[in-house]
Amino acid sequence: MPSVMIRKNKQGQLTLYVAKRDLEENIVSIEHDTEETWGGEVTLADGSSYYLEPMATPKLPITLRAKRMAGAG
């Protein structure tokens, strides 16, 4: 359960940042992206994916606990 920070970069893309793992990667897909629910499975540009507990759309940037899924070693 790494602590990850989700923010928007200069180009307005969502990025996921894990300080401890030295990882900053664009998010290519996010399972839920509506006003009420946001989160779920997110896939990064490098193919790995993380699971964020769905919630109401938060104010970015935000630090969350995420679960590692496929490819996120």
Binding site: M5, R7, K10, K59, P61
Partner: peptide, 16 residues
């Protein structure tokens, strides 16, 4: 960058 990211999150201050 660590403290800049923190300030962005907590205080909403953008950094460049």
């Amino acid at each position: 960058n660590y403290i800049s990211r923190h300030m962005e999150e907590k205080y909403g201050i953008p950094w460049m």
